[in-house]
Design a protein around this nucleic acid. Structure first.
Length: 484
RNA sequence: GAUUCCGUAGCUCAGCUGGUAGAGCAAUACACUUUUAAUGUAUGGGCCCUGGGUUCGAAUCCCAGCGGGAUCACCA
């Protein structure tokens, strides 16, 4: 008996998946009461009511009919099966054989005549029940348990599994979209000697053999641009970034970003590309461009509104900050009761006003364009507006999900911008960007005009699945250690 | 990091102004072989997060710690 209960290696599971089973119902079994041939199926035993049991696999559930005296053929085999059925626990993996039939209420089920244990569950799974109206009766909801034991969460909460399937599809659709354009998916270093490309505190580590300090990347931008210098027309990378910052419902120390750089393009082109990309993703993942996020119904169908940062501030505050110097901006912040620090330069002050007064209004997808030069050291100067750069951020539901530039490809200007960052750092801005000599050298060899874009995959998934918490879209969100 | 709420059975939760632990589901046994969250009867199940304190007596009140959620700050 014991042998039957433990972790069988021989499985005939490839005979039929649940999905195939459902197709068989449609094509063959419907209208019949009993299939001619046995089918073989395997899955997780998820409960029993009388002779009716639920078997679950990755796709869904099917009903089994386990008749008391109908298992096995020989008397010994019948006896054995009776014992096996008694030993069934929720969570056990079993394989069954039987014929399809329609029950009295019309549900297509498997009339089991043979049952085999594949694996035993030694711990009781939480039992979640739901009725036809979707009411859930015995839920498994404790966030701490759900995140620490995601395997249980995924087993008993099908809507959780659905989120992660969507997340995977978002990435797949994105990849397919880029690949169709001939852009190249690449991988760049996670361990970097200089943490460039963004403004954030890094995780630091040490390489023993080289005896050198290394940082987990906070961004991969400077490496991807090196590849554009190297002659690729379009490169993109989907991968983890690491930032040693605070954690909350929208921040996890490691998160996934997609960065893409396309040569001979500018940020106007990029805006159109992003519209097509997001529209495609929304349709492929949700079947529609519209998505409900909390209270708001959002439509990802392009084109999106485009408004410059200065105009957006004017629109929502009535104040024109475009000609103001640092002193005037500080005065404005004070009048609006916006907290500012001494180290903040002009760009940062404008960003504070924007964050405080504008962001929350940007519900439908909206491009904010043309940022002050001080806060964007890697973007190209605006072709006609003094003091601005060609940059946009895409806001949806009041939150930023994409950031893009016409990339700065003038090495002399780039060196100057890095030096301005160093000055900010000296004033106490610990987010100011470090200078990367090799990156400058690459630019000195010549980089074509290029547009670059970054999209937060976690954030995008949160929006497309209507989840306000990043933990709900990460399989294993960062947690403090569990104490035994 | 700050504020605030929370931590009781495998899960979801009651447990009042302090008097020594409860329900539903799950589990076990027996009966039932049926349906669509939940059949019946019976039974077992607890470091009430941890450590101090107050008290004759603490799941309950106080303090500290640990873990989680929410809000804020920082960031994406």
């Amino acid at each position: 008996m014991r042998g039957e209960l433990t972790f069988n290696a021989k499985v005939n599971r490839n005979v039929m998946t649940f999905q195939e089973f459902i197709e068989v119902i449609k094509e063959e079994a419907l209208g019949k009461y009993q299939s001619a041939e046995d089918i073989s199926i395997a899955g997780r035993f998820m409960g029993q009511r009388g002779p009716f049991a639920q078997l679950q696999d990755a796709v869904g559930r099917v009903q089994l009919y386990i008749g008391k005296d109908e298992l096995g053929e020989t008397p010994e085999n019948k006896e054995r099966h009776k014992k096996l059925v008694k030993l069934l626990d929720i969570g056990d993996y079993i394989a069954v054989k039987g014929k399809l039939f329609a029950t009295g209420t019309g549900e297509i089920s498997i009339h089991v005549h043979e049952l085999k244990f594949l694996s035993k569950s030694l711990r009781p799974l939480p039992i979640v029940k739901r009725d036809k109206d979707g009411n859930i009766y015995d839920s498994f909801t404790d966030p701490e348990l759900r995140y620490r034991q995601r395997y249980v969460d995924l087993t008993v909460n099908p809507e959780v599994k659905e989120i992660f399937i969507k997340r995977s599809r978002i990435v797949t659709v994105m990849r397919r979209f880029f690949d169709a354009q001939g852009w190249l998916e690449v991988e760049t270093p996670v361990l970097q000697p200089i943490h460039g490309g963004a403004a954030a505190r890094p995780f630091a580590t040490h390489h023993n053999t080289l005896d050198m300090k290394l940082y987990m990347r906070i961004a991969n931008e400077l490496y991807l641009k090196r590849l554009i210098v190297g002659g690729f027309d379009g490169v993109y990378e989907i991968g983890k970034m690491f930032r040693n910052e605070g954690m909350d419902r929208t921040h996890n120390p490691e998160f996934t970003s997609m960065e893409i750089y396309v040569a001979y393009k500018d940020y106007n082109w990029m805006m159109s590309m992003v519209e097509q990309l997001l529209e495609t993703i929304a349709k492929e993942v949700n079947g529609t461009t519209k998505v409900q996020i909390g209270e708001n119904s959002i439509d990802f169908a392009g084109p999106y509104e485009r408004i410059s940062m200065y105009d957006s501030i004017k629109k929502y505050t009535g104040i024109d900050v475009s000609q103001m110097d640092e002193v005037a901006l500080r005065k404005v912040c004070k009048e609006m009761h916006i907290k500012v620090d001494d180290y903040m330069g002009k760009g940062k002050l404008i960003d504070e006003i924007f964050g405080e007064k504008v962001e929350d209004h940007l519900i439908q997808p909206t491009y904010i364009t043309d940022y002050p030069i001080e806060m964007t050291p890697l973007a190209k100067k605006h072709r006609s507006e003094e003091g601005l750069v060609e940059r946009f951020e895409l806001f949806v539901n009041g939150k930023e999900i994409a950031n893009a530039y016409s990339e700065l490809n003038d090495p002399i200007d780039q060196r100057q911008r890095f030096e301005d960052q160093l000055k900010l750092a000296e004033r106490g801005d610990d987010e100011a960007m470090a200078l990367d000599e090799d990156f400058l050298r690459a630019l000195e060899y010549g980089m074509p005009p290029t547009s670059g874009l970054g999209i937060g995959i976690d954030r995008l998934t949160m929006m497309l699945t209507n989840n306000p918490s990043i933990q709900e879209v990460l399989f294993f969100p960062q947690m403090k250690p569990e104490v035994a």
